[in-house]
Amino acid sequence: MTLTRILIASALTGALALAATAQESNPAVDARQGQFQVMALNIGVLGNMARGNTDYDAETAQAAANNLLAVSQIDQRFHWPVGTDNASIEGTRALPAIWEEGSRVIEIWGEFGAGAEGLAAVAGDGLDAMRAALGPVGAACGSCHDDYRAPAN
């Protein structure tokens, strides 16, 4: 009886420990991933207009562009602590190259900022202007994913 109880208890403790490991998250990783989701959501608003899936609306487009510009102005220093690359921890696709000598991530983040600024300047000026200005923003995203994000799984 006692033995059974001990076994059950230890099994439960083991399961709890396992669950804790699986759920262990890094606040910096959470923050940067959340930031990218905010970007994707707002790019989606504009991208769907650009693709003709939704009607262009100047005010909505301007709001989304403003959000992208705001994200581009968040100082990134707290989002990328050393040791949060995909070789060190689970749950990230951030490649070690981000932190290595010759890394272009800061420069590319600047390109995103310039793109977002250009987009926010014209997003309310009509579909064609917005669509043209969305290109450089997407290019900056792709440029970073190209060298600094691992393929999924």
């Binding site: 994707a40 989606g44 991208g47 997407g138 792709g142 970073c144 994000r149 393929p151």
Partner: peptide, 23 residues
Amino acid sequence: AAYLNDGFTPDFDVAGGHMRSVI
């Protein structure tokens, strides 16, 4: 077809790696 043109997935992630060049 839209992804092959603008590189955005349906949830507006952006292709990276070699696929970016393919797009």
